[in-house]
Amino acid sequence: MNKVKIATAWLSGCSGCHMSFLNIDEALVDLAGKVEFVRSPIVDSKEFKPCDVAIVEGTVSDTDNLETLKSLRANCKILVALGDCAVFGGMTSFRNLFDPEDVLRRGYVETETTKDGAVPTDLHVPRLLEQATPLSAHVQVDYSIPGCPPHPESILHVVTSLLEGKDPRLPRELLHFDSRIKVRSDAK
């Protein structure tokens, strides 16, 4: 059987969505038998090989992010936005309330312990875009998994549904504001 090829990428965000993916724990072992990760998560190399499914965390916040996203879209059949940053902009888009120049100046010039600082501008660091935006502002997104981060069960549900060719829509009990599950009420 040909394994389904999955690429995952991390744009501007905290990696919590990828961590939540790892939190499927032992299900990772079963999944390993069915899929091939053509790119490791978190790696946003600018060129991607063709794959079946691309799963993307984070906002589009700098020039590297945009290039990565476009390359992924061009090389995948199904693109999934993973987590609030990718779906809505999330906390990463809080910076949109400020001018990017002011945000950078606070970080590299004004902070109290910083000495003789200047905003990095070398060609090896990407430029910030004017706004940090969700994936859908730039490319077509096929499925969205909301949550900060999405619950591991939600991620597993979507991935296994896609593998089985089923509608990956989340059942009602997996749609909540945050990643909490029933364990709390069961235990107390």
Partner: peptide, 27 residues
Amino acid sequence: TQFRGFEKFCEGRLFWEMPSIMPRICG
């Protein structure tokens, strides 16, 4: 090569919110 700007965008928010916002620095 990543920059997100927590040191700026928390300005103007109530300090009570910080323990919910700051964990999003790193998953």
